[in-house]
């Protein structure tokens, strides 16, 4: 059984099926790309996994538990927006993570912040956009969680920041953990993915090993995605 399991997971918004009978199993130790155009259902699935939405029907479990207090203690989540309080200084944010999460590695976070030359005394809202993204990622990746959900971690940042973000993800994730990266910018992330999940209109249309898929189709994941989602991808 995978560390993340979805069985017939469905979420409706009015008459729209944001997720439609999704069945998915993700094992520990894998970096998985949840790939699909905007509005495909990626964020909905991640929100359900983090207890921010309830499914209409079906079930999603993290390490055998439904999303709740227990799963939140072992799940690290990077949302697709700025979520840290702007008035807080960077060192206060580090203290807050240390207070709230038992698996937070303060030394790791402080080392990464120092490496980037981010002043811990600076308020979060006064950092550049790129640095705000990086601080958020550093907080999330400094946890020793069992599951990481990174929702659009590289959207809206410059190529140098993208490289740094991907470097942080691969060099800091816990090897016994599962990492789910949701994105529509596939070319930039495909080299770090072990598995890919294509999602379209709330349905899983493909779930495969990244290397096997490339070998089988003889092209990059990005090319395969562009072909499979032709005229639908909002890229």
């Amino acid at each position: 059984m995978g560390v993340i399991e979805c069985r017939d997971l469905t979420r409706k918004f009015g008459r729209t099926d944001a997720l439609d009978s999704v069945n998915l199993s993700i094992e520990s130790g894998r970096i998985v790309g949840l790939l699909g155009p905007n509005g495909a259902g990626k964020t909905t699935m991640i929100k359900i996994a983090n207890g921010l939405l309830k499914p209409t029907s079906g079930i999603l479990t993290i390490a055998g538990n439904k999303p709740g207090k227990e799963t939140k203690a072992v799940t690290a989540y990077l949302p697709d927006r700025e979520f840290l309080p702007g008035y807080m200084k960077v060192k206060e944010i580090v203290n807050m993570y240390s207070d709230f999460f038992g698996d937070f590695r303060r030394d790791k976070a402080e080392d990464m912040l120092a490496e980037l030359g981010i002043d811990p005394g600076k308020r979060f809202k006064n950092l550049s956009k790129g640095n705000r993204e990086k601080v958020q990622l550093i907080m999330v990746m400094s946890r020793e969680a069992e599951v990481y959900f990174l929702d659009e971690p590289i959207a809206g940042v410059d190529p140098a920041a993208r490289d740094y973000i991907l470097h942080v993800i691969i060099s800091n994730y816990n090897e016994n953990a599962a990492v789910v990266i949701s994105t529509h910018l596939i070319e930039d992330v495909e080299n770090i993915l072990d598995e890919v999940v294509f999602i379209r209109n709330g349905r899983i249309v493909l779930h495969d090993n990244a290397d096997d898929l490339r070998a089988e189709r003889g092209k990059s994941i990005d090319k395969i995605f562009r072909e499979d989602f032709k005229w639908q991808a909002d890229l």
Binding site: G68, K69, K72, T75, Y77, R81, E82, F83, F100, F101
Partner: peptide
């Protein structure tokens, strides 16, 4: 937006 942090803390 801060709900993305506060409501994902390990608290009931």
């Amino acid at each position: 937006d801060e709900g993305y942090l506060m409501m994902t803390l390990p608290a009931s």
